[in-house]
Nucleic acid binder design. Structure first.
Lengths: 229, 229
DNA sequence: CGCACAGTTGACGCACATCAACCTGGGTGG
DNA sequence: CCACCCAGGTTGATGTGCGTCAACTGTGCG
Protein backbone atom coordinates (compact mmCIF):
# COMPACT_ATOMS: atom_id res chain seq x y z
CA UNK A 1 0.00 0.00 0.00
CA UNK A 2 1.40 3.38 -0.94
CA UNK A 3 1.18 6.30 1.40
CA UNK A 4 -0.40 8.26 -1.40
CA UNK A 5 -3.39 5.95 -1.27
CA UNK A 6 -4.25 6.51 2.37
CA UNK A 7 -6.96 8.88 3.37
CA UNK A 8 -5.36 12.08 4.52
CA UNK A 9 -6.39 15.41 5.96
CA UNK A 10 -4.96 18.67 7.16
CA UNK A 11 -1.22 18.95 6.80
CA UNK A 12 -0.99 15.41 5.64
CA UNK A 13 -2.66 16.04 2.33
CA UNK A 14 0.50 17.78 1.23
CA UNK A 15 2.64 15.03 2.63
CA UNK A 16 1.31 12.24 0.46
CA UNK A 17 1.65 14.40 -2.61
CA UNK A 18 5.24 15.13 -1.76
CA UNK A 19 6.20 11.55 -1.32
CA UNK A 20 4.11 10.10 -4.11
CA UNK A 21 7.00 9.90 -6.50
CA UNK A 22 9.75 9.40 -3.96
CA UNK A 23 11.50 6.10 -3.58
CA UNK A 24 9.64 4.72 -0.60
CA UNK A 25 10.74 1.44 0.85
CA UNK A 26 8.14 -0.23 3.03
CA UNK A 27 9.24 -2.04 6.13
CA UNK A 28 7.20 -4.23 8.43
CA UNK A 29 7.75 -3.87 12.14
CA UNK A 30 6.69 -6.03 15.05
CA UNK A 31 5.52 -4.64 18.35
CA UNK A 32 8.27 -2.97 20.40
CA UNK A 33 10.76 -3.02 17.53
CA UNK A 34 13.07 -0.02 17.39
CA UNK A 35 12.95 1.81 14.09
CA UNK A 36 15.64 4.37 14.81
CA UNK A 37 17.84 4.93 17.82
CA UNK A 38 18.34 7.75 20.31
CA UNK A 39 21.65 9.49 19.65
CA UNK A 40 22.10 8.29 16.10
CA UNK A 41 21.75 10.12 12.83
CA UNK A 42 18.77 8.66 10.97
CA UNK A 43 19.38 7.73 7.35
CA UNK A 44 15.69 7.83 6.41
CA UNK A 45 12.63 9.96 6.79
CA UNK A 46 10.23 7.51 8.41
CA UNK A 47 6.51 7.74 7.82
CA UNK A 48 3.96 5.54 9.58
CA UNK A 49 1.91 3.41 7.18
CA UNK A 50 -0.02 1.27 9.62
CA UNK A 51 0.04 0.57 13.32
CA UNK A 52 1.06 2.86 16.17
CA UNK A 53 4.61 4.11 16.58
CA UNK A 54 6.12 6.39 19.20
CA UNK A 55 9.03 8.62 20.02
CA UNK A 56 10.59 7.38 23.25
CA UNK A 57 13.37 8.45 25.56
CA UNK A 58 15.35 6.24 27.91
CA UNK A 59 17.11 7.47 31.04
CA UNK A 60 20.37 5.92 32.19
CA UNK A 61 18.65 3.82 34.87
CA UNK A 62 15.98 2.41 32.54
CA UNK A 63 13.14 4.83 33.19
CA UNK A 64 11.34 5.48 29.93
CA UNK A 65 9.13 8.29 28.70
CA UNK A 66 7.21 8.42 25.46
CA UNK A 67 6.92 11.93 24.02
CA UNK A 68 4.79 11.26 20.94
CA UNK A 69 2.33 8.71 19.62
CA UNK A 70 2.59 8.52 15.84
CA UNK A 71 -0.42 7.50 13.75
CA UNK A 72 -0.56 6.43 10.10
CA UNK A 73 0.52 9.38 7.94
CA UNK A 74 2.72 10.94 10.64
CA UNK A 75 6.39 11.69 9.99
CA UNK A 76 8.40 10.04 12.75
CA UNK A 77 11.56 12.11 12.71
CA UNK A 78 11.09 15.55 11.22
CA UNK A 79 13.84 17.32 13.14
CA UNK A 80 16.31 14.48 13.18
CA UNK A 81 16.55 14.42 9.42
CA UNK A 82 17.36 18.10 9.32
CA UNK A 83 19.59 18.49 12.34
CA UNK A 84 21.38 15.20 11.91
CA UNK A 85 20.84 14.03 15.45
CA UNK A 86 17.90 12.41 17.18
CA UNK A 87 17.36 12.87 20.91
CA UNK A 88 14.75 10.12 20.82
CA UNK A 89 14.19 6.62 19.53
CA UNK A 90 11.33 5.76 17.23
CA UNK A 91 9.77 2.44 18.12
CA UNK A 92 6.63 0.45 17.50
CA UNK A 93 3.81 0.42 20.04
CA UNK A 94 2.00 -2.20 17.94
CA UNK A 95 2.80 -4.27 14.87
CA UNK A 96 2.60 -2.24 11.69
CA UNK A 97 4.62 -0.89 8.83
CA UNK A 98 6.57 2.23 8.01
CA UNK A 99 7.82 3.92 4.86
CA UNK A 100 11.50 4.69 4.59
CA UNK A 101 12.55 7.57 2.38
CA UNK A 102 16.32 7.85 1.99
CA UNK A 103 17.79 11.21 2.84
CA UNK A 104 21.13 12.64 1.83
CA UNK A 105 23.25 14.96 3.90
CA UNK A 106 21.56 17.08 6.54
CA UNK A 107 19.31 19.64 4.92
CA UNK A 108 18.24 23.14 5.79
CA UNK A 109 14.58 24.01 5.72
CA UNK A 110 15.11 26.31 2.78
CA UNK A 111 16.64 23.47 0.75
CA UNK A 112 13.33 21.65 0.76
CA UNK A 113 10.69 21.83 -1.93
CA UNK A 114 7.79 24.12 -0.90
CA UNK A 115 5.24 21.33 -0.50
CA UNK A 116 7.62 19.20 1.56
CA UNK A 117 8.50 22.23 3.62
CA UNK A 118 4.81 22.89 4.25
CA UNK A 119 4.30 19.27 5.27
CA UNK A 120 7.23 19.28 7.69
CA UNK A 121 6.16 22.61 9.11
CA UNK A 122 2.53 21.78 9.79
CA UNK A 123 3.40 18.44 11.30
CA UNK A 124 6.02 20.07 13.53
CA UNK A 125 3.54 22.69 14.74
CA UNK A 126 0.93 20.09 15.51
CA UNK A 127 3.49 17.91 17.32
CA UNK A 128 4.43 20.90 19.44
CA UNK A 129 0.79 21.64 20.32
CA UNK A 130 0.31 18.01 21.37
CA UNK A 131 3.53 18.14 23.40
CA UNK A 132 2.28 21.19 25.28
CA UNK A 133 -1.04 19.51 26.01
CA UNK A 134 0.71 16.39 27.30
CA UNK A 135 2.93 18.53 29.45
CA UNK A 136 -0.10 20.19 31.03
CA UNK A 137 -1.37 16.71 31.77
CA UNK A 138 1.88 15.46 33.28
CA UNK A 139 2.31 18.57 35.36
CA UNK A 140 -1.20 19.34 36.48
CA UNK A 141 -3.70 16.55 35.80
CA UNK A 142 -4.11 13.40 37.85
CA UNK A 143 -3.99 9.89 36.43
CA UNK A 144 -7.71 9.73 35.69
CA UNK A 145 -7.90 13.06 33.86
CA UNK A 146 -4.67 12.41 32.01
CA UNK A 147 -5.74 9.00 30.76
CA UNK A 148 -9.11 10.34 29.70
CA UNK A 149 -7.38 13.16 27.85
CA UNK A 150 -5.12 10.78 25.95
CA UNK A 151 -8.10 8.69 24.85
CA UNK A 152 -9.93 11.81 23.65
CA UNK A 153 -6.89 13.04 21.77
CA UNK A 154 -6.27 9.75 20.01
CA UNK A 155 -9.92 9.41 19.11
CA UNK A 156 -9.92 12.82 17.47
CA UNK A 157 -6.67 12.19 15.63
CA UNK A 158 -7.86 8.79 14.40
CA UNK A 159 -11.13 10.31 13.23
CA UNK A 160 -9.12 12.78 11.15
CA UNK A 161 -7.48 9.94 9.26
CA UNK A 162 -10.56 7.76 9.06
CA UNK A 163 -9.34 5.09 11.44
CA UNK A 164 -11.83 5.54 14.28
CA UNK A 165 -15.06 3.65 14.87
CA UNK A 166 -18.23 5.47 15.85
CA UNK A 167 -17.87 4.29 19.44
CA UNK A 168 -14.14 3.94 19.87
CA UNK A 169 -11.05 2.55 18.20
CA UNK A 170 -8.54 -0.24 18.10
CA UNK A 171 -5.58 0.26 20.40
CA UNK A 172 -3.39 -2.78 20.92
CA UNK A 173 -1.02 -1.05 23.33
CA UNK A 174 0.17 -2.69 26.52
CA UNK A 175 -0.70 -1.08 29.81
CA UNK A 176 2.98 -0.75 30.56
CA UNK A 177 3.50 1.28 27.37
CA UNK A 178 0.47 3.37 28.29
CA UNK A 179 2.30 4.04 31.54
CA UNK A 180 5.34 5.30 29.64
CA UNK A 181 3.07 7.64 27.70
CA UNK A 182 1.22 8.91 30.76
CA UNK A 183 4.13 9.04 33.18
CA UNK A 184 2.56 6.32 35.34
CA UNK A 185 3.47 2.81 36.41
CA UNK A 186 1.87 -0.07 34.58
CA UNK A 187 0.09 -1.10 37.74
CA UNK A 188 -1.49 2.28 38.20
CA UNK A 189 -2.60 2.40 34.57
CA UNK A 190 -4.46 -0.83 35.23
CA UNK A 191 -6.23 0.64 38.22
CA UNK A 192 -7.03 3.85 36.38
CA UNK A 193 -8.57 1.92 33.48
CA UNK A 194 -10.70 -0.03 35.92
CA UNK A 195 -11.82 3.19 37.48
CA UNK A 196 -12.78 4.68 34.11
CA UNK A 197 -14.68 1.49 33.42
CA UNK A 198 -16.36 1.46 36.81
CA UNK A 199 -17.85 4.89 36.23
CA UNK A 200 -19.06 3.75 32.82
CA UNK A 201 -16.90 5.99 30.63
CA UNK A 202 -14.98 3.34 28.67
CA UNK A 203 -14.51 -0.36 28.04
CA UNK A 204 -11.02 -1.52 27.16
CA UNK A 205 -10.59 -5.17 26.34
CA UNK A 206 -8.45 -7.12 23.87
CA UNK A 207 -6.89 -4.01 22.43
CA UNK A 208 -10.17 -2.32 21.63
CA UNK A 209 -11.17 0.89 23.33
CA UNK A 210 -14.89 1.49 23.42
CA UNK A 211 -15.96 4.91 24.60
CA UNK A 212 -19.30 4.54 26.34
CA UNK A 213 -19.76 8.11 27.46
CA UNK A 214 -17.90 10.55 25.21
CA UNK A 215 -19.47 13.67 26.71
CA UNK A 216 -18.49 12.83 30.27
CA UNK A 217 -15.07 11.56 29.25
CA UNK A 218 -14.38 14.84 27.44
CA UNK A 219 -15.55 16.81 30.44
CA UNK A 220 -13.44 14.81 32.89
CA UNK A 221 -10.38 15.26 30.67
CA UNK A 222 -10.99 18.95 30.09
CA UNK A 223 -10.45 18.09 26.44
CA UNK A 224 -10.78 20.80 23.80
CA UNK A 225 -9.89 19.48 20.31
CA UNK A 226 -9.03 22.87 18.84
CA UNK A 227 -5.31 22.46 19.44
CA UNK A 228 -5.31 19.55 16.99
CA UNK A 229 -5.94 21.92 14.13
CA UNK B 1 17.87 49.10 22.37
CA UNK B 2 17.22 47.37 19.08
CA UNK B 3 17.08 43.63 18.89
CA UNK B 4 19.70 43.83 16.16
CA UNK B 5 22.18 45.10 18.71
CA UNK B 6 21.89 42.20 21.12
CA UNK B 7 24.44 39.44 21.11
CA UNK B 8 22.99 36.50 19.27
CA UNK B 9 23.91 32.95 18.44
CA UNK B 10 22.62 29.87 16.63
CA UNK B 11 19.25 30.36 15.05
CA UNK B 12 18.95 33.77 16.56
CA UNK B 13 21.63 35.27 14.38
CA UNK B 14 19.25 35.04 11.47
CA UNK B 15 16.40 36.42 13.54
CA UNK B 16 17.96 39.75 14.31
CA UNK B 17 18.87 40.21 10.69
CA UNK B 18 15.33 39.53 9.64
CA UNK B 19 13.84 42.04 11.99
CA UNK B 20 16.54 44.67 11.67
CA UNK B 21 14.50 46.79 9.32
CA UNK B 22 11.07 45.82 10.58
CA UNK B 23 8.89 48.22 12.50
CA UNK B 24 9.55 47.03 16.02
CA UNK B 25 7.65 48.63 18.82
CA UNK B 26 9.21 48.09 22.21
CA UNK B 27 6.99 47.52 25.19
CA UNK B 28 7.91 47.38 28.85
CA UNK B 29 6.27 44.73 30.97
CA UNK B 30 6.12 44.26 34.71
CA UNK B 31 6.37 40.91 36.42
CA UNK B 32 3.32 38.68 35.85
CA UNK B 33 1.85 40.90 33.14
CA UNK B 34 0.09 39.04 30.35
CA UNK B 35 1.45 39.87 26.92
CA UNK B 36 -0.98 37.81 24.87
CA UNK B 37 -3.92 35.68 25.86
CA UNK B 38 -4.83 32.02 25.54
CA UNK B 39 -7.52 31.55 22.90
CA UNK B 40 -6.97 34.84 21.14
CA UNK B 41 -5.39 35.61 17.81
CA UNK B 42 -2.19 37.56 18.41
CA UNK B 43 -1.73 40.70 16.33
CA UNK B 44 2.04 40.79 16.80
CA UNK B 45 5.07 38.61 16.64
CA UNK B 46 6.51 39.06 20.10
CA UNK B 47 10.23 38.83 20.72
CA UNK B 48 11.79 38.97 24.18
CA UNK B 49 14.19 41.89 24.59
CA UNK B 50 15.00 41.62 28.26
CA UNK B 51 13.70 39.70 31.24
CA UNK B 52 12.13 36.25 31.35
CA UNK B 53 8.81 35.49 29.70
CA UNK B 54 6.85 32.25 29.51
CA UNK B 55 4.12 30.41 27.69
CA UNK B 56 1.51 29.39 30.23
CA UNK B 57 -1.72 27.42 30.24
CA UNK B 58 -4.57 27.75 32.68
CA UNK B 59 -7.03 24.98 33.46
CA UNK B 60 -10.66 25.75 34.24
CA UNK B 61 -10.14 25.32 38.00
CA UNK B 62 -7.09 27.55 38.17
CA UNK B 63 -4.32 25.00 37.91
CA UNK B 64 -1.51 26.46 35.82
CA UNK B 65 1.30 24.93 33.82
CA UNK B 66 4.13 26.75 32.09
CA UNK B 67 5.29 25.06 28.89
CA UNK B 68 8.15 27.32 27.88
CA UNK B 69 10.57 29.79 29.43
CA UNK B 70 11.49 32.46 26.90
CA UNK B 71 14.83 34.23 27.09
CA UNK B 72 15.98 37.42 25.35
CA UNK B 73 15.99 36.80 21.62
CA UNK B 74 13.28 34.12 21.72
CA UNK B 75 10.14 34.46 19.64
CA UNK B 76 7.16 34.09 21.98
CA UNK B 77 4.47 32.96 19.58
CA UNK B 78 5.80 31.33 16.45
CA UNK B 79 2.81 29.11 15.73
CA UNK B 80 0.16 31.50 16.84
CA UNK B 81 1.08 34.05 14.24
CA UNK B 82 0.82 31.47 11.50
CA UNK B 83 -2.19 29.46 12.60
CA UNK B 84 -4.13 32.40 13.93
CA UNK B 85 -4.89 30.87 17.30
CA UNK B 86 -2.86 30.55 20.47
CA UNK B 87 -3.47 27.70 22.89
CA UNK B 88 -1.32 29.48 25.46
CA UNK B 89 -0.82 32.85 27.07
CA UNK B 90 2.49 34.67 26.96
CA UNK B 91 3.27 36.33 30.24
CA UNK B 92 6.18 37.83 32.11
CA UNK B 93 8.06 35.84 34.75
CA UNK B 94 10.08 38.94 35.60
CA UNK B 95 10.06 42.60 34.64
CA UNK B 96 11.46 43.19 31.19
CA UNK B 97 10.61 44.31 27.70
CA UNK B 98 9.43 42.79 24.47
CA UNK B 99 9.45 43.76 20.84
CA UNK B 100 6.16 43.82 18.96
CA UNK B 101 6.23 43.30 15.23
CA UNK B 102 2.83 43.80 13.61
CA UNK B 103 1.62 40.91 11.50
CA UNK B 104 -0.99 40.91 8.78
CA UNK B 105 -3.37 38.11 8.00
CA UNK B 106 -2.34 34.59 8.97
CA UNK B 107 0.61 33.49 6.88
CA UNK B 108 1.77 30.18 5.50
CA UNK B 109 5.35 29.13 6.02
CA UNK B 110 6.03 29.44 2.31
CA UNK B 111 4.88 33.06 2.31
CA UNK B 112 7.76 34.00 4.56
CA UNK B 113 11.12 35.30 3.43
CA UNK B 114 13.80 32.59 3.54
CA UNK B 115 15.72 34.08 6.44
CA UNK B 116 12.58 34.59 8.51
CA UNK B 117 11.49 31.08 7.63
CA UNK B 118 14.84 29.74 8.79
CA UNK B 119 14.56 31.68 12.04
CA UNK B 120 11.03 30.43 12.75
CA UNK B 121 11.99 26.90 11.88
CA UNK B 122 15.11 26.62 14.02
CA UNK B 123 13.38 28.20 16.99
CA UNK B 124 10.42 25.83 16.61
CA UNK B 125 12.70 22.80 16.48
CA UNK B 126 14.59 23.89 19.55
CA UNK B 127 11.35 24.64 21.40
CA UNK B 128 10.16 21.14 20.60
CA UNK B 129 13.40 19.58 21.83
CA UNK B 130 13.08 21.50 25.09
CA UNK B 131 9.43 20.46 25.40
CA UNK B 132 10.41 16.81 25.07
CA UNK B 133 13.09 17.16 27.69
CA UNK B 134 10.66 18.84 30.11
CA UNK B 135 8.17 16.09 29.47
CA UNK B 136 10.74 13.45 30.38
CA UNK B 137 11.28 15.37 33.58
CA UNK B 138 7.61 15.71 34.44
CA UNK B 139 6.92 12.07 33.67
CA UNK B 140 9.99 10.34 35.00
CA UNK B 141 12.19 12.55 37.15
CA UNK B 142 11.58 13.46 40.77
CA UNK B 143 11.48 17.01 42.09
CA UNK B 144 15.20 17.17 42.84
CA UNK B 145 16.34 15.90 39.45
CA UNK B 146 13.78 17.99 37.61
CA UNK B 147 14.76 21.23 39.35
CA UNK B 148 18.44 20.51 38.79
CA UNK B 149 17.72 19.87 35.12
CA UNK B 150 15.89 23.16 34.70
CA UNK B 151 18.77 25.08 36.26
CA UNK B 152 21.25 23.34 33.95
CA UNK B 153 19.11 24.03 30.90
CA UNK B 154 18.69 27.73 31.69
CA UNK B 155 22.36 28.12 32.45
CA UNK B 156 23.29 26.67 29.07
CA UNK B 157 20.73 28.76 27.22
CA UNK B 158 21.81 31.93 29.01
CA UNK B 159 25.44 31.19 28.21
CA UNK B 160 24.50 30.99 24.55
CA UNK B 161 23.19 34.53 24.61
CA UNK B 162 25.90 35.91 26.87
CA UNK B 163 23.68 36.44 29.90
CA UNK B 164 25.20 33.94 32.29
CA UNK B 165 27.83 34.55 34.93
CA UNK B 166 30.73 32.17 35.38
CA UNK B 167 29.15 30.70 38.48
CA UNK B 168 25.42 31.13 37.86
CA UNK B 169 22.89 33.66 36.70
CA UNK B 170 20.21 36.10 37.69
CA UNK B 171 16.77 34.57 38.00
CA UNK B 172 14.17 36.73 39.69
CA UNK B 173 11.40 34.15 39.46
CA UNK B 174 9.08 33.40 42.36
CA UNK B 175 9.07 29.91 43.81
CA UNK B 176 5.42 29.63 42.95
CA UNK B 177 6.16 30.30 39.28
CA UNK B 178 8.99 27.79 39.46
CA UNK B 179 6.35 25.35 40.66
CA UNK B 180 4.23 26.04 37.60
CA UNK B 181 7.24 25.32 35.43
CA UNK B 182 8.19 22.15 37.26
CA UNK B 183 4.72 20.77 37.94
CA UNK B 184 5.20 21.18 41.68
CA UNK B 185 3.59 23.18 44.47
CA UNK B 186 5.31 26.33 45.60
CA UNK B 187 5.90 24.79 49.01
CA UNK B 188 7.64 21.79 47.55
CA UNK B 189 9.84 23.97 45.35
CA UNK B 190 10.98 25.71 48.50
CA UNK B 191 11.92 22.40 50.13
CA UNK B 192 13.63 21.16 46.99
CA UNK B 193 15.74 24.31 46.76
CA UNK B 194 16.75 23.90 50.40
CA UNK B 195 17.73 20.32 49.67
CA UNK B 196 19.87 21.37 46.69
CA UNK B 197 21.49 23.94 48.92
CA UNK B 198 22.00 21.50 51.78
CA UNK B 199 24.02 19.18 49.56
CA UNK B 200 26.05 22.13 48.35
CA UNK B 201 24.98 22.21 44.71
CA UNK B 202 23.45 25.69 44.55
CA UNK B 203 22.74 28.88 46.40
CA UNK B 204 19.58 30.76 45.50
CA UNK B 205 19.01 34.08 47.20
CA UNK B 206 17.52 37.40 46.16
CA UNK B 207 16.87 36.22 42.64
CA UNK B 208 20.41 35.12 41.97
CA UNK B 209 21.22 31.49 41.33
CA UNK B 210 24.76 30.52 42.14
CA UNK B 211 25.81 27.08 41.02
CA UNK B 212 28.37 25.81 43.49
CA UNK B 213 28.91 22.37 42.04
CA UNK B 214 28.14 22.27 38.32
CA UNK B 215 29.55 18.79 37.75
CA UNK B 216 27.42 17.15 40.42
CA UNK B 217 24.33 19.19 39.52
CA UNK B 218 24.64 18.06 35.91
CA UNK B 219 25.07 14.47 37.00
CA UNK B 220 22.08 14.57 39.34
CA UNK B 221 19.93 16.08 36.58
CA UNK B 222 21.12 13.65 33.94
CA UNK B 223 21.64 16.77 31.86
CA UNK B 224 23.10 16.48 28.37
CA UNK B 225 23.19 19.86 26.58
CA UNK B 226 23.28 18.42 23.07
CA UNK B 227 19.52 18.80 22.60
CA UNK B 228 19.93 22.55 22.86
CA UNK B 229 21.71 22.59 19.52
C1' DC C 1 1.27 -28.99 27.08
C1' DG C 2 3.79 -25.46 29.06
C1' DC C 3 6.27 -21.31 28.66
C1' DA C 4 6.34 -16.35 28.60
C1' DC C 5 4.28 -12.24 28.66
C1' DA C 6 0.30 -9.22 29.87
C1' DG C 7 -3.06 -8.23 33.10
C1' DT C 8 -4.86 -8.21 37.98
C1' DT C 9 -4.80 -7.80 42.92
C1' DG C 10 -3.22 -6.66 47.70
C1' DA C 11 0.09 -4.74 51.07
C1' DC C 12 2.90 -1.23 52.02
C1' DG C 13 5.80 2.96 51.58
C1' DC C 14 7.02 7.43 50.03
C1' DA C 15 7.09 11.74 47.44
C1' DC C 16 4.53 15.18 46.99
C1' DA C 17 0.10 18.15 47.97
C1' DT C 18 -2.49 20.76 51.12
C1' DC C 19 -3.41 23.61 54.93
C1' DA C 20 -2.14 26.78 58.22
C1' DA C 21 0.79 29.56 60.78
C1' DC C 22 4.53 32.47 60.98
C1' DC C 23 8.61 35.18 59.28
C1' DT C 24 10.82 38.59 56.29
C1' DG C 25 11.84 42.54 53.63
C1' DG C 26 10.91 46.05 50.58
C1' DG C 27 7.52 49.55 49.19
C1' DT C 28 4.07 52.98 50.43
C1' DG C 29 1.53 56.51 52.58
C1' DG C 30 0.52 59.36 56.35
C1' DC D 1 10.81 58.60 58.99
C1' DC D 2 8.37 55.38 60.97
C1' DA D 3 4.22 52.22 60.68
C1' DC D 4 2.00 49.50 58.13
C1' DC D 5 1.15 46.32 54.54
C1' DC D 6 1.43 42.50 51.76
C1' DA D 7 3.65 39.38 48.55
C1' DG D 8 6.88 36.06 48.89
C1' DG D 9 9.32 32.79 51.57
C1' DT D 10 9.67 29.25 55.39
C1' DT D 11 8.22 25.71 58.46
C1' DG D 12 5.42 21.92 60.54
C1' DA D 13 1.55 18.69 60.54
C1' DT D 14 -1.16 15.80 58.10
C1' DG D 15 -3.21 13.55 54.07
C1' DT D 16 -3.09 11.00 49.65
C1' DG D 17 -2.02 9.59 44.91
C1' DC D 18 0.83 6.90 42.95
C1' DG D 19 5.07 3.66 43.04
C1' DT D 20 6.99 -0.65 44.28
C1' DC D 21 7.04 -5.37 45.30
C1' DA D 22 5.23 -9.71 45.04
C1' DA D 23 2.06 -13.15 44.07
C1' DC D 24 -1.43 -14.90 41.28
C1' DT D 25 -4.27 -15.24 36.97
C1' DG D 26 -5.31 -15.31 32.37
C1' DT D 27 -4.03 -15.99 27.40
C1' DG D 28 -1.79 -16.74 23.11
C1' DC D 29 2.00 -19.21 20.88
C1' DG D 30 5.68 -22.72 19.90
Amino acid sequence: MSIALRPHHNGRAALSGVFRDALVHERTVVSHMEVSLQGETPKFVHVVHSGLMCRSHMLADGRRQITAVLLPGDICNVEAVLTGKADYSVSALTAGSIGEIPTGSPLEINDLAPDLRQAFWSQTLRDAAILREWMIGLGRRNALERTAHLFCELWTRLQHIGLADVDGYEMKVTQSDLGDILGLSGVHVNRTLQQLRAIGFIHFRNGTLRISNPAELTKLAGFDPSYLG
